[in-house]
Design a protein around this nucleic acid. Structure first.
Lengths: 110, 110
DNA sequence: TTAACATAATACCAGATGGTATCATGTCAA
DNA sequence: TTGACATGATACCATCTGGTATTATGTTAA
């Protein structure tokens, strides 16, 4: 059970949360600042931020009465690694190469 | 709005479904063959396969009474693209470069 | 033709999820 | 000190989700 992978994938499953990450890639933001970009309540945004934090995709620091949310891009690395495992299957150049190999094998079988 | 991305991310959020994709990357399989690798019912596996199909991560062809599930790795491309957008933020070499640039700027500010 | 087989379809359940509303707490500034 | 402000905490709701069990349909092979 890869907890880091599951936490990250779970967090990424919601479009609002993916959108939040995009906003945070521009700059750190308080909850209120994040919420300004959406039409849902701050409480709902706060829940999304909690899920993102659990997935290690953001970190949070408190400054006075503000809670500042910061992108943690390294949390995406497990996801990138998992997805890129399949590169070999969709990469056009590799697919072409595979076809060439198969053709070659077929010729030798004849 | 981006249906392909959402369908794929939604499908990938469940660990069983990610596991199924790994199995299907080895070879095509019927529902029963996929189910052999898990301790849940075939009906539950079938539901997962439906979600994977909706996310365009697999395709299905019927042969007689069998339903053969086939990996569609290209469906992962939108996900790979989305995740790789953040490469610039976690790539160690780039982070090192950013730090160097900041140091340089700080020196000039003094 | 008929029995075994692979899958489809449906109904149902418990718990997770995304949302709201409301009230409490801590912090800043006049 | 006190009011405005940013967030935290809690309770609640409808819907989605992952699972089960059961029954139905189509297919193969004896």
């Amino acid at each position: 059970m890869n907890a880091a992978l599951q936490g990250a994938f779970r967090a990424l499953a919601d479009p609002t949360r993916r959108d939040i990450l995009m906003h945070l890639s521009a700059r750190d933001m308080t909850i209120a600042e994040v919420a300004d970009h959406f039409s849902i309540t701050r409480a709902a945004v706060k829940k999304h931020l909690t899920v993102l934090e659990e997935g290690r995709l953001i970190s949070v620091r408190t400054e006075g009465r503000e809670r500042i949310n910061h992108l943690e891009p390294v949390g995406l690395k497990p996801v990138a690694d998992w997805v890129n495992y399949f590169d070999r299957y969709w990469d056009d150049r590799l697919l072409g190469l595979q076809r060439a190999v198969k053709d070659h094998e077929r010729k030798n079988d004849d």
